[in-house]
Design a binder for these strands. Structure first.
Lengths: 213, 213
DNA sequence: TATCCGATTTATGATACAGTATTCATTACG
DNA sequence: CGTAATGAATACTGTATCATAAATCGGATA
């Protein structure tokens, strides 16, 4: 069982170039005393080499290119796209619990694209960086990034981003018969009562948490 | 304070074109009988119209384009990218702790692209889906997705993916003077001693955890 | 023997060019 | 008089062309 290794791109094999047995000598100008004169700016070295020249596939892209019209505002993005190539990466599965497990062959689950996996409604999605620890028990840590979708209905029990008194906050929504609360997931903090639903503007529902190790 | 709404792209406003009061008449060739002759292939209509011409922003992209070199194999992908545009989404910051906070204007932190943010070395990166809870205290839950980079050196204390006895596992690496351990982050589990480093193959270092709410 | 050199081939980014699309307002036609 | 046609003008796209940079060859020189 070896770690997944991307197969190196094979560099073009150098085709042996047939050596020219006969190189036409640089025509020399022979003076009266048989002294050879070099052309101005030349050292007497170098010269034609049949078969010399840059091999194909030695450019930054390793393949031929084509000129394509790109809207001016997207040129940078496109060049970055070409450089980094956002294609789906392999997804494996592994056991954390018992270490008991499935046969090795079952580890490759498929492939995954982050944007596709996490962003269902791009035009309604934005990110929120968290500060604080009031939602620690829900697995939301300081500096985590939340994926927030404002097209999802903020149902009871959902973790939402809301603006209260002009301040953004992340909490779990709790709507009782009589009142609405924004619930923390940390015993050190108290629920925030919302007197009037007009005092709160819900920005969206948290769909994912991204935590950097 | 309203939820972030994508500002519609303004379509170019058509500038009213000043009508020319004086059009220079087509020079006519007068024959002996005062008969006007048209130039060959012309009907007498048409002619110069100062200010006529296609307005800007009427192409498929609505803006000027630039010719860019794209590797041949990626031309289709790039054109699709330009059409659908997976562009960075807005990133806001918010307070979880005190709910005290910065003024509303400070909430927009910038924009963020998931791939750019999470995948530093695409060719050395893969994902792992977790099963079990032995790393719960490190914020790694059942079914979470781990971003794993095998180009990062597996230093002591890093959370790694390793293959032990043919099974994939996620643990924290602990190298003592005498022995290597794979440490869980859950008191219900015991450290796994590695007798011989050849008994373990490290697949990579965990860089991020993605937890769906 | 190692390095230098000039010629050669490949590759990229910028620019030019030819053809297509859109607009203006005057003229011809019914 | 109303409408369609017209020729010139401007914007736009895809491809060709050009200038320059990069990589290679093998003979000449130190």
């Amino acid at each position: 069982m070896t770690p997944p290794i991307k197969t190196p791109i094979k560099t073009p094999v150098k085709t042996p170039v047939k050596t020219s047995a006969q190189t036409t000598p640089e025509p020399s100008v022979t003076g009266g005393n048989n002294v050879t004169r070099l052309p101005p700016g030349k050292t007497g070295r170098g010269g034609a080499r049949p078969g010399a020249g840059r091999p194909k596939g030695q450019g930054p892209y390793g393949e031929p290119t084509k000129a394509v019209r790109i809207p001016v505002s997207m040129v940078d993005q496109v060049l970055n796209f070409v450089k980094t190539g956002t294609k789906p990466l392999p997804l494996f599965s592994c056991s954390v619990a018992a270490g008991f497990p499935s046969p090795a062959d079952d580890h490759l689950e498929g492939s995954l694209d982050l944007n596709e996996h996490l962003i269902k409604h791009p035009s309604a999605t934005f990110f929120v960086r968290v500060s604080g620890d009031s939602m620690i028990k829900a697995g939301i840590h300081e500096d985590d990034i939340l994926v927030v979708d404002r097209s999802i209905e903020p149902r009871n029990g959902k973790i939402i981003i809301a603006a209260v008194e002009g301040q953004l906050t992340v909490k779990r929504l709790n709507r009782t018969k009589t009142q609405t609360f924004l619930m923390p997931e940390n015993d050190a903090y108290a629920p925030i009562p919302i007197a009037d639903d007009n005092d709160m503007v819900i920005w969206g529902v948290v769909t994912s948490v991204i935590h950097q190790v």
